Simulated scan of single mutants.
Amino acid sequence: MDVSVASWLVIAAALVAANLPFFNDKVFALVATRWPRKPLFVRLAEMTVLYFVVGLIGFALEAQIGNRFQQTWEFYAISACIFIVLGFPGFIVRYLRKRHG
């Protein structure tokens, strides 16, 4: 797999994973909840778990391509912020869009 393809694959996976908690009311889109609408803290917990899942996908692709590079705390802080920004469209649709009807 090419480095460019792997990079775009991780970005696409992050975009889907960051928005997944906001576009459905099931936990990880699989398990029904006891609430009629999933609360925000559950959605944020899902985002945290999905951040680590996307990170594991990225590490696996990096190891497949070649040598894995050592990452410091700055990398994880920036990637977490980017993951949150990627989830912003789902947040807007869920909480800030006006409902008609």
Rank of each mutant, 00 (worst) to 15 (best):
T72P: 04
K98V: 06
L86A: 11
F41S: 10
I11C: 00
V85S: 13
P36F: 12
M1H: 14
A29S: 02
P39Q: 02
Q64F: 11
V27R: 02
R43S: 01
A29Y: 06
A12C: 04
G55Y: 11
L30G: 05
P36I: 15
F75M: 04
M1Q: 14
C81R: 06
L15V: 08
G101T: 03
L20Y: 08
Q64D: 10
A60R: 03
S7Q: 07
A29C: 03
V54W: 04
D25P: 03
L40I: 04
R97L: 09
D25Q: 06
T33H: 07
L96D: 12
A63E: 15
L50T: 00
F22D: 04
I11T: 03
V93A: 13
K98E: 05
G90R: 04
A45W: 12
H100A: 14
F22I: 10
T33V: 07
F41N: 15
I65F: 13
Y76K: 08
G90T: 03
I92L: 12
A32Q: 11
A45I: 14
L20C: 07
V49T: 00
D25I: 04
T72Y: 15
D25E: 02
H100D: 15
R37A: 14
G58L: 00
R43C: 05
F91Y: 10
D2F: 07
F91A: 12
G101R: 15
V16E: 13
G58C: 00
F88W: 10
V54M: 05
I11G: 00
I92V: 10
A32N: 08
D2K: 03
N24G: 00
K98L: 11
L86D: 09
E74K: 15
